[in-house]
Computed example of a mutant assay.
Amino acid sequence: MQLSFLNLASNNLSGKVPDCWARWPYIVGVNLGNNHFTRILQTSMSSLPLLEMLNLRNNSFSGNLPSFLKNGSSLVSLDLGENQFSGMIPSWVGQSLSNLKILVLRSNKFSGPIPHQICNMSVLQILDLAHNELTGYVPKCVNHLSAMLVINNSLESYIYFPVSGGQLLVEPLLLKERVYDYSSNLGLITSIDFSNNELSGEIPTELTGLKRLHFLNLSNNHFIGQIPQNIGNMESLETMDFSRNHLTGTQIQSFEASSFVGNYDLYGPPLNNSCSSNSSSNKEEVHHVKGINWFFVSMAFGFIVGFWAVVGPLLYSSSWRYAYFQFIDRMWYKLQYRCYW
């Protein structure tokens, strides 16, 4: 049987993926998403020369990125999101998967830096590495992602599969924690999502050269410095999120305030804080926090000293204990006598 597309998505399948791919050498698309698979073997899937789409999203796969993908030179869409993959993103992703237009690795446990070889993926339109444990800087070569550079509505930018009536069976895009269904015109969308990682350093100015980029999300990282001044050159940018970083300076007024919240050194519209009020409030907050800390320290120290000044002698001196209890008895009799009369 010349099977061209296998769609087992959204079932209740579990266990390991069987090694039977050699029976279907003409298969173009495989969708195993939204199941409970736990193990994918280093199998004959590497011998599928025509495979263009692989969707393993929302399973329980773990371990390093499967090495059989090195032979996936025909892959156009790869979605491994919402699994338990770990380790570093290997450099061969940008070398062996040069025809990818969609790369989704979100919600895994990948660590280490973003390999600069990803910049070699000249036709890449959707790059989603959100919700991992990635560290280091955003590669400055990001402006080599040619498909995001020039505004182009030609047929070459469309993502099309010669199966299932030409429909692309992929999960809807998740942008700024909102779900968007672009399945009908996905080829016109470009997106970079590095949110919820441990990335640091300054936002590279090379990002602003991506004039065809529609969605950019760098929120919940550790970026510092100012927002690149020429970010206004990104003509196609519809949504941008730089929130919850450590950015300074002024923000871009043409975007909503939620794109910048959590950057306490940013000021000006659309946020309601100014440069002077922001800096003074930060100083007051720091001073207040320090005062509260010293107050509790001194209170605890005073309690400890007072407690042992009274209780210590009673524990270690029998004469002090005798005198203390005699004093308590005398006071008790006096109180009783007064209450009686």
Results as ranks from 00 to 15, higher is better:
1 M>N: 11
4 S>W: 11
7 N>E: 10
8 L>N: 10
12 N>V: 00
22 A>H: 04
22 A>I: 10
25 P>W: 13
27 I>D: 00
34 N>K: 02
37 F>A: 03
51 L>Q: 08
61 F>I: 07
63 G>A: 01
73 S>Q: 09
86 S>L: 08
92 W>V: 15
94 G>Y: 07
105 L>Y: 05
109 K>M: 08
110 F>M: 12
112 G>W: 08
113 P>T: 12
116 H>I: 14
117 Q>A: 10
130 A>P: 01
135 T>K: 07
136 G>D: 04
139 P>Y: 14
143 N>C: 07
145 L>K: 13
146 S>Y: 13
151 I>D: 00
161 F>M: 11
164 S>F: 14
167 Q>A: 03
167 Q>S: 05
169 L>N: 12
170 V>K: 00
172 P>S: 02
174 L>D: 08
177 E>L: 03
193 D>W: 11
195 S>C: 05
203 I>Q: 08
209 G>A: 04
212 R>D: 15
213 L>P: 03
213 L>I: 05
218 L>V: 06
220 N>F: 04
239 T>W: 15
245 N>G: 01
253 Q>F: 01
254 S>H: 09
262 G>S: 06
264 Y>S: 08
267 Y>K: 12
277 S>Q: 12
279 S>G: 11
284 E>F: 03
287 H>Y: 15
289 V>D: 15
297 V>C: 11
304 I>V: 12
308 W>H: 02
311 V>W: 12
313 P>N: 11
313 P>K: 10
318 S>I: 10
323 A>G: 10
327 F>Y: 02
328 I>K: 06
331 M>F: 11
335 L>C: 11
338 R>M: 07
341 W>E: 11
